[in-house]
Design a protein around this nucleic acid. Structure first.
Lengths: 226, 226
DNA sequence: GTCTATATGAGGATAGAC
DNA sequence: GTCTATCCTCATATAGAC
């Protein structure tokens, strides 16, 4: 993820000169696509940011679309990994893992922006990444729904909910909060997400299901354990 | 606010020839911007769809950006109107009004798509509509927060919630669900939204009205997943 | 693997006739 | 108010040298 910057003339390191260019290109592309969108970014600007000429760039990625695909591919592998890891590590269920992810995203504005911008552009059915995102979202929802059901069975979440609808809802909340945060960094994405998870958890079915310790005037539950 | 509307040389009908062109341009632009985004749409294609040449179009809107601004402006007026109306008409509070809006959006895919695409492109700080959307979102959240507080006071929603965070959350849910629905029209946006409003409403504090019909027995919720 | 030079085309905007 | 013709800039991509 670091910036495989510049071309130090010698390669005492692990990678050849070509490898370094490739990494520099990807790094530049991530930043520029995030800042200006796919359509708004020129290959020449990516090349320049990677200290190459534009034909030099094309040696590594034969077209702009190929470059885009590589970025998507790369992220696809990262994707969910963080979530799955924190799920396994903390063993506190999906909700906590999601909160961790949202917190993490606060410090990954660039990556968040990259994907927000690309998804948005890809809403257009003509966009080269359209099919990619359709599939990606479907898979994410499926994984979330499965995980939600696990949590319900484990008693970490109220049962009798529509896990599929909830999965879509969770994705929506994360995406939608990101949009607002990207538009205005003062927007409290984490706070709003916690408001959401409070709603997810503080539910009568769940409380009284396993059952609940709500004192009759639950006035201050909003500031529950946190 | 209104558009310093054209200078129709004559006004025999509701619209002169120029007026008709103008309307045709806006109509075409709405469709094309929605389908291909702002950057992805050429002025020539808009002109063609409006049965004009590109310079003919430029007679009405001196630049592409001017055309964009007009579309945003126009929507700005529509905006919230529907919500406010259904709020006033049904007098059932914000949640019901929001549900109506989401249902309505199902049949306005083009308009929804237009704005989803434009917001997305406008995440980039360089986009001509960036500032517009920052302001717009801020205003929407403020209005929602105010309305939420009204509903809380009217007893239609549980009190003691963070209305500001909730406002951002509501916007996020609507936007995020739209994204998924636009990517894949089979996605059940309305169902997912109802799942959300259920969470908003089905809360012990609220249900129990002034207070709790929740039987206390606090076993395991203290250590519930959190 | 990277360069210079260039082909090719698209897109926004202007000039000026009708 | 709309057209034809044209300019200019920019962007993707290719050819071919080093």
């Amino acid at each position: 993820m670091a910036n495989a910057r510049a071309k130090s003339s010698r390669s005492t390191g692990p990678s050849s000169r070509g490898e370094r260019s490739r990494a520099a290109i990807l790094d530049a592309a991530r930043r520029l696509f995030a800042a200006r969108g796919y359509r708004g970014t020129t290959m020449a600007s990516v090349a320049a940011a990677a200290d190459l000429t534009q034909p030099g760039l094309l040696h590594h990625f034969p077209s702009k679309e190929a470059l885009l695909r590589e970025l998507l591919e790369e992220r696809y592998h990262d994707d969910g990994r963080r979530l799955r890891e924190s799920l396994a590590r903390e063993n506190q269920g999906l909700v906590v893992a999601l909160e961790r992810l949202v917190e993490h995203n606060l410090s990954s504005q660039e990556s968040v922006r990259l994907f927000a911008v690309l998804v948005a552009e890809a809403l257009s059915a003509y966009h080269p990444a359209h099919a990619y995102f359709v599939e990606r979202y479907e898979k994410i929802r499926q994984w979330l729904a499965t995980t939600l059901r696990d949590d319900e069975q484990a008693g970490r979440l109220p049962a009798n909910r529509d896990a599929d609808a909830l999965a879509g809802l969770i994705v929506a909340v994360m995406d939608g909060l990101q949009t607002q945060w990207l538009l205005d960094p003062r927007f409290d994405m984490v706070g709003a997400f916690r408001t959401f998870t409070d709603l997810l958890i503080d539910d009568p079915d769940h409380r009284s299901g396993a059952t609940a310790a709500v004192d009759a005037d639950g006035s201050d539950r909003a500031d529950s354990p946190r």
